[in-house]
């Protein structure tokens, strides 16, 4: 199978699902953010073909749709890792030492030169402004799981666990999406 055929087939499959999202959310520009949220949730980023399709269907310019997509922190135009690791850098977490945790994670995941996703596509490292778990600061959120009262060492151990799980999973061809 040549690549262009594969791409076309991927796009076609994807647009079928985008169509379902649009049907569920409603085909009006006022629902754009919800539609983009569902797309982001499904593919962990906003694929260009999906955005073009949404723009056409909602009768909006592609520019406007990209404007919204790039305005909000939740949306990403690049694929994100299977595990989205977010270090909370809210005020409470910040004063209780979120920066050393972030630095430790960056080192642990070997993210250099501004890259945020690991080469194997497993982990994406981000900071988040506040998840409102200030009473148990500092925290790290992996996908939807909140890990509390962390130290850099404790955070590294959590990543170790996930890495180990991935290795085991690879051997038993685990296809389950963790989020």
């Amino acid at each position: 199978m040549d690549t262009s055929t594969a791409t076309t087939r991927n796009t076609a499959n994807r647009l079928v699902e985008v169509e379902e999202i649009l049907a569920r959310r409603g085909r009006t520009p006022t629902e754009l953010i919800g539609v983009l949220q569902d797309i982001q949730e499904r593919w962990h980023y906003l694929p260009e073909d999906a955005l073009n399709y949404v723009a056409t269907t909602l009768g909006m310019s592609v520019n406007t749709v990209f404007g919204v997509a790039t305005f909000y922190a939740q949306f990403s135009l690049e694929p994100k890792g299977k595990y989205l690791v977010r270090i909370c850098d809210g005020t409470a977490c910040h004063v209780k030492g979120s920066t050393p945790i972030y630095e430790a994670m960056k080192k642990k995941l070997d993210l250099r030169d501004g890259r945020v996703t690991t080469a194997d596509g497993l982990f994406t490292l981000e900071t988040v402004a506040c998840v409102g778990a200030c009473g148990i600061a500092p925290v790290m959120v992996i996908n939807d799981q909140v890990h509390s009262q962390l130290t850099p060492e404790a955070a590294e151990m959590i990543i170790d666990t996930l890495m180990a799980r991935e290795q085991d999973g690879a051997e038993s061809s685990d296809e389950v999406e963790p989020r």
Partner: peptide
């Protein structure tokens, strides 16, 4: 939209 970092009353 309780966006203030360090606030979680509304949540």
């Amino acid at each position: 939209d309780e966006g203030d970092p360090g606030a979680f009353m509304n949540r």
